[in-house]
Simulated assay, not measured.
Amino acid sequence: MLQFTFLGTSSGVPSLTRNVSGLAVRHSKNKDWILIDAGEGTQHRIQQTHLTLQNLKAICITHVHGDHCYGLLGLLASAGMNGRKDTLTLIAPKEIQAWLASSMQLTELYLPYEIHFIDVATINAPIQINPELTISAHTLHHRVASYAFAIEVIQQQKKLNVDALNALSIPKGKLWGDLQQGKNIEWNGETLQAQDFVEITTQQVKAIVSGDNDQPELLHQACENADLLIHESTYTQETLEKVGANPMHSSAKMVAEFSESVNLPNLILTHFSPRYHDAKEIALLEQEAKHSYTGQLFMAEDLKVFELDALGQLKAV
């Protein structure tokens, strides 16, 4: 139901193997997708995927630090140069709107499409992106205002009661199709109600994508009934204690302990300090998390894709 493509998994600065923050989220029923954060170089990463800027429905910026937003302007400009006409929703701190307006004026940037800006601080109810997908925001704790985004898909699946149809000898074809669409039909002089032949099941998944945050416990309520948490894991606990509280980031241990406390089934760690970008160092973060977390754990990599199915099961693809 939801597909996640990591466009950048480094914190602060890019490295040879990891770009700075960017995550594409696509509802697998269609080509529409959402971008969460747009660090410098995000549009280059997008070009390495099957995603297009024409199908981008919304951009969510978790906070104003450059490794999460410096790629926004170039991406918006490229969308316009590629002929985009549809309105694009931008959910972000109000400072992003001011920065965008100033940059457009000073660099003579013209966008041939409208940007519908939503100040993330004012969100008090889920925002409907399409008929089945909503986004809500949750406040975090960082050096600047930072937010997590909860992405939820609720979709209904209609299934014909084939046994009941066959029992009445109703032939396949238009009559079955009409019932599937909720239309009543006439058969042997009787009106058959569609609701008597269609079984409706509701499928629902929920993922939380966090911005920078040194208090994972702030997501306790957001993670209720969540199938997946994607959270920064900038340091090991040992390194975090050495660098001190000023950076206001989380360690792998902190996120793992929180995830275990709320019985979260799936966890993806990302936003790794450049000191951990080789396989041996990433393994240290992974081992630290596994010591405290018994659910399914993944370590994010640039261009790695994950799918969350209707049963809430996560897999790498």
Rank of each mutant, 00 (worst) to 15 (best):
V205T: 06
F258S: 06
I46E: 03
R143W: 04
A77G: 15
I170H: 06
E288S: 03
N188I: 10
G244V: 03
S259Q: 02
R45Q: 15
R84I: 01
A58S: 13
L192A: 04
I59H: 00
A148H: 04
V25T: 04
Q287G: 08
H141M: 12
Q97Y: 07
D278L: 01
I185K: 15
P265N: 08
E307I: 15
A121H: 14
L314R: 08
S169P: 09
G182F: 05
H249Y: 09
L284C: 10
H116I: 10
I91E: 04
I127L: 12
V20D: 02
T294H: 12
T17I: 14
T270Q: 07
I115M: 05
Q237F: 02
N213Y: 03
L72Q: 01
Y147R: 06
L303S: 11
Q203I: 07
K94P: 08
D37I: 11
I34Y: 01
S28L: 12
S146K: 05
N82G: 09
P171V: 03
D302S: 11
Q296T: 04
A58T: 10
S11A: 11
G211W: 06
Q47D: 11
K159L: 08
Q193R: 12
L56W: 00
Q237A: 08
E132T: 13
L140K: 06
A252R: 02
F6S: 01
P112Q: 12
H44R: 15
S292G: 03
Q313Y: 07
L2R: 10
K253H: 06
L264P: 03
V162A: 07
L219W: 01
Y70P: 11
M299E: 00
T107E: 12
Q180D: 12
S102A: 13
L269C: 09
E281S: 00
N55W: 04
I268T: 02
K183P: 04
Q105M: 15
G22I: 12
G83K: 06
Q156I: 03
L90A: 02
Q296C: 06
K290L: 08
V13G: 06
K31W: 12
Q180G: 10
V255D: 02
I129D: 02
L168T: 06
T294C: 10
D119F: 09
E186F: 14
I185L: 07
G80A: 04
I59D: 01
S102C: 10
L285Q: 01
N225G: 09
V120N: 13
L218F: 07
H65W: 15
H291P: 04
L240F: 00
N263G: 13
T236E: 00
T87Y: 10
H27L: 07
D214F: 09
L106D: 14
V209G: 04
T134Y: 06
H138G: 05
M1C: 11
T270F: 01
H231V: 05
V209K: 08
I135P: 04
A245N: 12
E217H: 11
Q296L: 13
G83R: 12
Q105T: 15
L133H: 03
M81P: 09
L285E: 00
H291L: 14
V162I: 11
Q105I: 12
K29S: 11
Q128C: 13
P247M: 02
M299S: 01
A98C: 11
Q237P: 08
I115W: 00
I123W: 04
H271R: 05
K85M: 06
H63L: 13
R275I: 02
K172P: 13
D37C: 15
M81D: 12
Q181Y: 10
E257H: 14
T9M: 05
K290H: 04
G189R: 08
E301C: 07
